Deep mutational scan, measured.
Amino acid sequence: LTVQLGNLEWHFDNPEQALKMAEELAKRYQLKVEIDNGTLKFK
């Protein structure tokens, strides 16, 4: 699973870790998370 923020990307083997990080980033920057083809992206 990949977490993508702008041109930064983090790759996780563990989806739970990816979701946890995505939630933290979304909270911190007040963004919405969307999943696009196995990639978590922020809007």
Score class of each variant (00 low, 15 high):
residue 1 L to D: 02
residue 1 L to K: 03
residue 1 L to E: 02
residue 1 L to P: 04
residue 1 L to Y: 14
residue 1 L to F: 14
residue 2 T to D: 04
residue 2 T to E: 03
residue 2 T to Q: 04
residue 2 T to C: 12
residue 2 T to H: 07
residue 2 T to F: 07
residue 2 T to K: 12
residue 3 V to C: 06
residue 3 V to R: 00
residue 3 V to P: 02
residue 3 V to G: 02
residue 3 V to D: 02
residue 4 Q to I: 15
residue 4 Q to R: 10
residue 4 Q to S: 08
residue 4 Q to M: 13
residue 4 Q to P: 03
residue 5 L to V: 06
residue 5 L to M: 08
residue 5 L to F: 15
residue 5 L to D: 02
residue 6 G to P: 03
residue 6 G to T: 03
residue 6 G to C: 11
residue 6 G to F: 06
residue 6 G to I: 04
residue 6 G to S: 04
residue 6 G to V: 04
residue 6 G to M: 05
residue 6 G to W: 09
residue 6 G to E: 05
residue 7 N to G: 13
residue 7 N to A: 12
residue 7 N to M: 11
residue 7 N to C: 10
residue 7 N to D: 12
residue 7 N to Y: 12
residue 7 N to E: 11
residue 7 N to H: 13
residue 7 N to L: 11
residue 8 L to A: 08
residue 8 L to K: 15
residue 8 L to G: 05
residue 8 L to H: 14
residue 8 L to I: 12
residue 9 E to I: 15
residue 9 E to T: 15
residue 9 E to M: 14
residue 9 E to S: 14
residue 9 E to F: 14
residue 9 E to Y: 13
residue 10 W to E: 01
residue 10 W to F: 08
residue 10 W to S: 01
residue 10 W to R: 02
residue 10 W to G: 00
residue 10 W to Q: 02
residue 10 W to C: 07
residue 11 H to W: 11
residue 11 H to A: 05
residue 11 H to F: 12
residue 11 H to P: 02
residue 11 H to T: 08
residue 11 H to E: 04
residue 12 F to Q: 00
residue 12 F to H: 02
residue 12 F to K: 01
residue 12 F to L: 03
residue 12 F to S: 01
residue 12 F to P: 01
residue 12 F to A: 01
residue 12 F to N: 00
residue 13 D to K: 12
residue 13 D to R: 08
residue 13 D to T: 13
residue 13 D to P: 09
residue 13 D to N: 12
residue 13 D to Q: 10
residue 13 D to L: 08
residue 13 D to S: 13
residue 13 D to W: 08
residue 14 N to W: 06
residue 14 N to Q: 08
residue 15 P to D: 08
residue 15 P to R: 12
residue 15 P to F: 15
residue 15 P to T: 10
residue 15 P to H: 12
residue 16 E to Y: 11
residue 16 E to H: 11
residue 16 E to L: 13
residue 16 E to V: 13
residue 16 E to D: 12
residue 16 E to I: 13
residue 16 E to T: 10
residue 16 E to W: 11
residue 16 E to K: 11
residue 17 Q to L: 13
residue 17 Q to E: 15
residue 17 Q to K: 11
residue 17 Q to A: 14
residue 17 Q to F: 10
residue 17 Q to D: 15
residue 18 A to K: 00
residue 18 A to H: 00
residue 18 A to D: 01
residue 18 A to I: 05
residue 18 A to F: 06
residue 18 A to G: 07
residue 18 A to V: 04
residue 18 A to P: 01
residue 18 A to M: 05
residue 18 A to R: 00
residue 18 A to E: 00
residue 19 L to K: 07
residue 19 L to N: 04
residue 19 L to P: 00
residue 19 L to R: 07
residue 19 L to T: 05
residue 19 L to V: 08
residue 20 K to D: 06
residue 20 K to I: 10
residue 20 K to L: 11
residue 20 K to A: 14
residue 21 M to V: 10
residue 21 M to E: 03
residue 21 M to Q: 04
residue 21 M to D: 02
residue 21 M to L: 15
residue 21 M to Y: 15
residue 22 A to L: 06
residue 22 A to V: 06
residue 22 A to S: 04
residue 22 A to K: 01
residue 22 A to D: 00
residue 22 A to Y: 03
residue 23 E to S: 10
residue 23 E to V: 10
residue 23 E to M: 13
residue 23 E to P: 00
residue 23 E to Y: 14
residue 24 E to M: 14
residue 24 E to N: 12
residue 24 E to A: 14
residue 24 E to D: 12
residue 24 E to V: 13
residue 24 E to L: 14
residue 24 E to K: 14
residue 24 E to F: 15
residue 24 E to C: 11
residue 25 L to D: 00
residue 25 L to C: 05
residue 25 L to W: 08
residue 25 L to V: 06
residue 25 L to H: 03
residue 25 L to M: 06
residue 26 A to N: 03
residue 26 A to Q: 04
residue 26 A to S: 07
residue 26 A to F: 07
residue 27 K to Y: 09
residue 27 K to I: 12
residue 27 K to G: 07
residue 27 K to C: 07
residue 27 K to Q: 13
residue 27 K to A: 13
residue 27 K to M: 11
residue 27 K to D: 11
residue 28 R to F: 07
residue 28 R to H: 08
residue 28 R to W: 06
residue 28 R to G: 02
residue 28 R to S: 04
residue 28 R to N: 05
residue 29 Y to T: 03
residue 29 Y to I: 03
residue 30 Q to M: 09
residue 30 Q to D: 13
residue 30 Q to C: 09
residue 30 Q to P: 03
residue 30 Q to W: 08
residue 30 Q to F: 10
residue 30 Q to E: 09
residue 30 Q to H: 15
residue 30 Q to G: 15
residue 31 L to A: 03
residue 31 L to R: 00
residue 31 L to E: 01
residue 31 L to C: 05
residue 31 L to K: 01
residue 31 L to V: 06
residue 31 L to G: 03
residue 31 L to Y: 06
residue 31 L to S: 02
residue 32 K to W: 08
residue 32 K to E: 13
residue 32 K to A: 11
residue 32 K to R: 11
residue 32 K to D: 06
residue 33 V to C: 05
residue 33 V to L: 13
residue 33 V to H: 03
residue 33 V to M: 10
residue 33 V to G: 02
residue 34 E to H: 11
residue 34 E to D: 07
residue 35 I to F: 14
residue 35 I to L: 14
residue 35 I to Q: 08
residue 35 I to S: 05
residue 35 I to D: 04
residue 36 D to W: 10
residue 36 D to C: 07
residue 36 D to P: 00
residue 36 D to G: 08
residue 36 D to F: 12
residue 36 D to L: 11
residue 37 N to L: 04
residue 37 N to V: 04
residue 37 N to H: 10
residue 37 N to Q: 10
residue 37 N to K: 08
residue 37 N to E: 10
residue 38 G to E: 06
residue 38 G to W: 04
residue 38 G to Q: 08
residue 38 G to I: 04
residue 38 G to L: 06
residue 38 G to N: 11
residue 38 G to M: 06
residue 39 T to S: 06
residue 39 T to A: 06
residue 39 T to R: 09
residue 39 T to Q: 07
residue 39 T to K: 10
residue 39 T to M: 10
residue 40 L to F: 07
residue 40 L to G: 01
residue 40 L to R: 00
residue 40 L to K: 00
residue 40 L to P: 02
residue 40 L to A: 03
residue 40 L to T: 00
residue 41 K to I: 14
residue 41 K to T: 14
residue 41 K to P: 01
residue 41 K to G: 04
residue 41 K to F: 09
residue 41 K to W: 09
residue 41 K to E: 03
residue 41 K to D: 02
residue 42 F to Y: 03
residue 42 F to K: 01
residue 42 F to G: 02
residue 42 F to T: 02
residue 42 F to M: 11
residue 42 F to I: 14
residue 42 F to D: 02
residue 42 F to S: 00
residue 43 K to H: 13
residue 43 K to G: 07
residue 43 K to A: 12
residue 43 K to Y: 15
residue 43 K to P: 05
